[in-house]
Design a protein around this nucleic acid. Sequence first.
DNA 1: TCTTTTATTCATCATCTGATGAATAAATCG
DNA 2: CGATTTATTCATCAGATGATGAATAAAAGA
Lengths: 205, 205
Amino acid sequence: MSGALPPLRRGRRSGGSDSRELILATARRLFAEHGFEGTSLRQVAREAEMDPAMVHHFFKGKDQLFAQSIELPADPDEVLSGVESLDPAQRSEAIVRAVLRLWESPAQHGLVAFARGTIGSKAKTALLRDMMARTILSRITAGLPGSPAEVKMRGNLVATQVVGLMLMRYVVRLEPLASASHDEVVRLVAPNVQRYLTGELTPAD
Amino acid sequence: MSGALPPLRRGRRSGGSDSRELILATARRLFAEHGFEGTSLRQVAREAEMDPAMVHHFFKGKDQLFAQSIELPADPDEVLSGVESLDPAQRSEAIVRAVLRLWESPAQHGLVAFARGTIGSKAKTALLRDMMARTILSRITAGLPGSPAEVKMRGNLVATQVVGLMLMRYVVRLEPLASASHDEVVRLVAPNVQRYLTGELTPAD
DNA sequence: TCTTTTATTCATCATCTGATGAATAAATCG
DNA sequence: CGATTTATTCATCAGATGATGAATAAAAGA
């Protein structure tokens, strides 16, 4: 019976502090599992074993926490580096490989959180749309021949295939697709992406 | 100044009652816009101009309301009717058309709600996975030649393309894809679906 | 050293959440 | 008609939510 436990002291801890990173990591995980609305600040704080007010101290509020949680750890420039410079006829494999690599990097939690949070609400979907159109699709379709309208449509089509692939493999986790190797996925999917990029699209024209 | 307004009487209204349907329609709309967690019972009640307790009266709670809201109005049997009986070599066009038709039917709100609610949370994703594997993919790949493993993979691949297409066209609304006609979408996408169904998948084997 | 910044905790807010039980009135059924 | 079922409203519950401001303590900077 040592009597009074040390009176849970407030004030700064001794030594360095991981708290900020810990909160971020926990938030990423929870946002990835339950989406934006399905995750509460207090839940994040609880699982990170901190006071809820810490979340407000480091981040201004839930919105900012979410924003920082899903901030793409690798920017499109880097992930798609090299794609633009490739001959369009060989671009599809590079795209599929880049995207597979990205989704199996430490960024995965953030990306799933991004997908969940962003598909889950109309307002956030608009963000996704602009982000995709401006930063990703334009890069993927850079230098393609054809009218701007045609090039845009090709970009859209690539998006349907690549986003669908990511969703089924990493979010829904359909088997056997989720367990297939990179090489296998490339072999299966890249040809279809290639048709969207440079193939004949209009057999009826 | 007629003085006291009629003392907001409780008890049953005279005449028939749309209330149940009104709640359902409102719930579908809101779930479609904000997902499951992002929609509250009281919000539904407010927009339907009813007392929140009505929602509990007609549906037992939020979960049941959601379940009834997203209940696929057309069952897969009907939507994909005829697909199974088609020659696999011509199945892709039928699939794409059936899916486009479905998503532009009155079921659209429910489907978007389904997508949002279901992608937004880990628990609900499992439901989606089983539902897809059992009721949809099996129908689409019925009668395909090849090993069961290969057929399953073909089904998965079709899913990546079709789900990606639906997501980009109806949820994210990427342009110009979102505004393209059915014929155009079929022309653009069906060949890729066809490759997944019956095409050469393994140029390296 | 003294001062300022930063990390941590606590107490508390108003608000919204999903839910329940009772009161009332119309419809329906016998 | 009378009894029962159904539709509607109201009052209220306990709990969670996001947020704020103050108290405290260590670190960093002067």
